[in-house]
């Protein structure tokens, strides 16, 4: 049973799920075992309503203003932003590579779509990540069942609609099993859509 650390206030607008913000930062060049990854990731906080979300988000640095190798993760409460978590282990993620300058807007649109239940895939969404890197930024959305093609197609189509991406944007789907095998989150065969 889940420990309810937060609840929506009486006049606040409740969300379908409770969510937790996480932040991670890595020194480039260091190896990342799943253990050191877990040590590098910090919880920012959990919220249960629209208003509580804004209280966190309004005080957070925009992804576009982060430097180095940093990630914000927003996952349903109880799901760790790790491939190995029970909710993620059979899942995968849609990955979108963004040229510098687009991350803040795209991240906001992505998480608003997730919090507002715009994806319409039942319990399938696990969370979303924005990854700030040197040459580009990457956003991704994780779901539970990588083999469920109807779900992954619906997530892709919703992403296209809510992100309003440039027409040449490359999207790729990667299973966490593949990420565990090749020990990298993003490099993979790209499927241009």
């Amino acid at each position: 049973s889940r420990k309810k650390s937060v609840v929506p206030g009486p006049t606040e607008h409740p969300l379908q799920y409770y969510y937790t913000f996480w932040y991670s930062r890595r020194t480039p060049g260091r190896p990342t075992s799943s253990q050191s990854y877990e040590q590098n990731i910090k919880q920012i906080g959990t919220f249960a309503s629209v208003e509580q979300f804004w209280r966190f988000y309004s005080h957070m640095v925009c992804p576009g203003d982060l430097s180095g190798h940093s990630d914000f993760h927003l996952f349903k409460e109880g799901i760790k932003p790790m491939w190995e978590d029970d909710a993620n282990k059979n899942g995968g993620k849609w990955i979108i590579h963004l040229r510098k300058g687009l991350a803040s807007r795209c991240w906001e649109n992505l998480i608003l779509a997730m919090l507002g239940e715009q994806f319409m895939v039942g319990e399938e969404i696990c969370g979303a990540v924005v990854s700030v890197r040197f040459q580009e930024d990457i956003i991704s959305i994780w779901n539970k069942t990588a083999s469920d093609q109807a779900t992954t197609a619906r997530i892709r189509d919703t992403l296209r609609r809510v992100l309003n991406l440039p027409p040449n944007t490359v999207m790729e789907y990667k299973t966490h099993t593949d990420s565990i095998k090749d020990k990298t989150s993003f490099r993979n065969t790209k499927i241009t859509l």
């Binding site: 208003e51 209280r55 309004s58 239940e117």
Partner: peptide, 21 residues
Amino acid sequence: GTRIIYDRKFLLDRRNSPLAQ
């Protein structure tokens, strides 16, 4: 059961609510 669905505009309109400060 019923799902709680909010569109982008609804969420953005709550941003400046006193409850969100």
